[in-house]
Write a protein that binds this DNA or RNA. Sequence first.
DNA 1: CACGGAACGG
DNA 2: CCGTTCCGTG
Length: 286
Amino acid sequence: MRRSFHLHQSPSILQMQCNYNSSIGALPSSYWSRTVLFPDWAYKPAWSPGSRQVQLWHFLLELLGRGEGGAIGWGGEWGEFIIRDPERLAKLWGERKGKPHMNYDKLSRALRYYYNKRILHKTKGKRFTYKFNFSKLILVNYPGFPACHQPVPSAPLPLPLLPSEGVATGVPLCGGGAMVDRALQSVAYPPLMPYCLPKPALFPQSHPGHGHFPFLSAPPPPRTSFPKLWELSAGLPPDNSAALRLTTVGWPTKSSAEWVSNNMARTSSLHVGLRGKVRGDKEREK
DNA sequence: CACGGAACGG
DNA sequence: CCGTTCCGTG
């Protein structure tokens, strides 16, 4: 029943990347893997052997992780990034995808499609500035948000960036925030890209009791009236529905207000599920 | 610039 | 599904 999870597709890659877990400061990998939940999209490996193509958000993370020269860079807030040279970025993206006529206009359209999927949102007012929804981080197993402010080791990971790694090789990067110039500022970026982590087991299926989730404020009605609601939602497999329902709990960051205002309006994942099927909601829109 | 509809394609 | 292409609107 459990739909095959993305991680299963590239165990080797994953294991390879997750070896770093042990190198996160004093924190055992188990700490991370059981404490932090990333949105489901974050766990998709860059290159599934199943030959799914690179996705834009992943490409961006890759460039950001490499500290790519000037085309794109991290911004002031967690997950925020600034496209410094839109056309150059577009060109890079175009090369990767074999779309020679790519430009920022088109690329940005693709980015806008991420809004509904809650992968990205726009930092309003700032040109070329977008933000990954890392704020959707969820804490599990820690009722009181213990030392919940990302126990982020400020020091960059000893990332085994292979010399052979590069755009052309298609080697998956576990980069992400690892290579962020620490010089940049105090902001802590994800020390590991989420997709480097094993996905924490959520609700044990054996426990229909669903109860023992500390933060589970109000599980959306299991109303059987909309049985497969989540399955319609783009990019959000049922696996994650549980996680997403919890997102209202949110991550207590400085930007939480922004995040909340941005998404509280949409209320809950129920809405999101609906919005996923782009077609039907035109009328609804305004 | 930024947004989102629409048609289309791999 | 995930963009790509094109385009009207603000």
